[in-house]
Design a binder for these strands. Structure first.
Lengths: 355, 355
DNA sequence: ATGAAAGCGCTAACAC
DNA sequence: GTGTTAGCGCTTTCAT
């Protein structure tokens, strides 16, 4: 059934009123806002709807001139494809889900930004959600978003390896900072720089390192702790492994007495937030950094500078995000092809090391 | 045209292959993943598809027992409504867009989190995007997201008032920290606390305040600068208006010589990041805070503590986000109903004030 | 209280 | 190279 509406072109959906609703009613809005559809563009251009569709999706299938004409008319009408209709028809939503454990952690902000910029170029949107570092919640979120997105970026995933693998069966997934064999993953590594960093501490005379670890389930924590431990052994330095599970400033600061008690003369912290907590704690104890105790952080993501400025490792998180997006978009094959991209960070020696 | 597929139930879409694809092919995934549809549930329950739809959307229209039966079967089949189909049919997407000027600004992280949590409870998703504090880009993003979302949260919008108003005609919009008459807006105000703060500075003996302003186009900046200027006059204190347009630490720090030059004995900064920049700059100049110069920030959103810890104003951004979401969901009427919700922040006197 | 069927806007298989 | 048309899964009007 067709019927002449305001343009005489669009088909009449019988649930719409037969007459223009009054200006004040809710319908009026819909009425006025009624965006041009592919059909309208097709009529105006004197072609079939499918041709318009092709003009947008596979322009090289059409005669250049046809494409140009259609595009011109579309622009004139302010036509924009309806994403929902497209999603329903193709099964692809033009959105990716990005799961981060903690959106307030400054490490993730640049990563989110980079991912969005990269996706935007392909006209894709990114849905960012927060897992609270809770594997259960992470899984719930993924399930919830599954029908809505075309794939997932799982940053610092806390999922069990089994669950993580399971998800890769059900959806396109790229992991960031989670190293699971056979999956697509990109890692902002710190091992080389960290080893180098420990060497610098040794040079500065360190004899006893306190490693202040972060979230146990995070891949980065595993990488960093094992690297530091190994490097310490290599340089014949004593090492004590402490931990701030929640990864927050306050807890790190509260840990300082312990660091003092064990008589460490160098601290390597999981990240700069923890390093900063330790720095402040040490100062509070009247301990000079780096004169009495050297300090090395990681991430280089603080929005501010500290005093003294913390020696750290600059992680390549933006690069990681961009690559991850590229992998996710991928060759449009079946699943995402397995890959392991490791990006080594860069040691930034500043004022808390002597070496 | 119908045809018996693996269940004999679903209609056959002619673009699907007639035979089950091989296990290795891409189709196989789609095939296996084929989620239960409303039709399948309907068949199993011996009712019409529309009844299943009603069971989910308007259960009170149906006999309780019918609803129960349908729900049971749906659960058994792992049925979940297809959001895209629903969105296409209803024109509502179940998503809101949240636009922030700068995702790396720690002020926004808790706000984003709160908004997401609030939306999540209503089974809505939030699409966060970043405008780079660029009005043009903000407008572009809104347009881009328009077909995708059911409404917008515009945080610290930099749009011209005209454009902002225009958007409210085209979509459901709630502003956060932008005060436009006739729209729905929620504001994390600082005026009362700031006035109080200036009183404290005066008490501490301040004779000349330097106000370090932030982004010119931000409502918060307008509110804070005018409040400080007025309060200064009230207490008969001289005031100099400086500015850090980009709102970043480094620029604030670079401004310190100017502060020293004019001989200010108190600084009020647009936010804690700028305050921190000034703090470090002053220290660099050998100027003690608060002994020689007092300092007052705003936001209380730094992920770390400073030394000395900065006196500031704790803004109620989480509350604001929750309220904004509630407004956006609203009474489901026409547009969002006009409202002005002001939430006064709380003065937190710490170590950079003498008062 | 429930069923039948049209339609949301778009894509893709097939025909020419 | 372009037109025709079925169908994506759901909601909603209208009829019973």
């Amino acid at each position: 059934m067709k019927c002449a509406m305001h343009t005489g072109i669009t088909q009449c959906r019988h649930r719409l009123p037969r007459v223009p609703p009054t200006v004040w009613s809710r319908q009026w809005r819909c009425w006025m806002q009624q965006r041009a559809t592919i059909i309208e563009v097709a009529h105006r251009a004197g072609v079939a709807p499918s041709t318009v569709s092709r003009a947008f999706n596979k322009p090289r299938m059409l005669r250049p001139e046809t494409v140009r004409r259609i595009m011109a008319i579309a622009a004139e009408l302010g036509y924009e494809p309806n994403v929902n209709a497209r999603a329903l028809s193709t099964g692809k939503s033009g959105m990716f889900g990005l799961v981060v454990p903690d959106i307030t952690n400054p490490f993730f902000a640049p990563l989110i930004r980079a991912a969005q910029r990269a996706a935007e170029n392909e006209d894709l949107d990114i849905l960012v959600v927060e897992s609270d570092s809770d594997p259960e919640r992470e899984l719930r979120l993924v399930r919830r978003l599954m029908p809505r997105v075309a794939g997932f970026l799982l940053a610092s995933s806390r999922l069990s390896e089994r669950k993580a693998r399971e998800i890769t069966e059900l959806a396109r997934v790229v992991f960031i900072n989670r190293d699971i064999a056979g999956t697509a993953r990109v890692l902002t590594e710190s091992s080389e720089s960290l080893k180098h960093g420990v060497a610098v501490l040794a040079d500065g005379g360190a004899r006893h390192i306190a490693y202040v670890g972060g979230p146990r389930k995070s891949w980065s924590e595993t990488e960093r702790s094992s690297t530091v431990i190994e490097a310490a052994r290599e340089f014949d330095i004593a090492i004590t492994h402490l931990r701030v599970e929640a990864g927050i400033y306050r807890d790190a600061r509260a840990l300082t007495p312990e660091i003092v008690r064990i008589g460490a003369d160098a601290v390597v912290a999981f990240d700069d937030i923890l390093a900063h907590g330790v720095l402040d704690g040490l100062r509070h104890h009247g301990i000079d950094v780096p004169a009495h105790v050297q300090l090395l952080g990681c991430d280089d993501a603080l929005p501010i500078e500290t005093h003294p400025s913390i020696s750290t490792i600059r992680l390549r998180s933006e690069e990681a995000a961009v690559i991850a997006i590229r992998l996710l978009i991928g060759d449009d094959g079946d699943a995402v092809s397995s890959a392991r991209i490791g990006l080594q960070g860069v040691l930034e020696l500043r004022e808390t090391t002597r070496g």
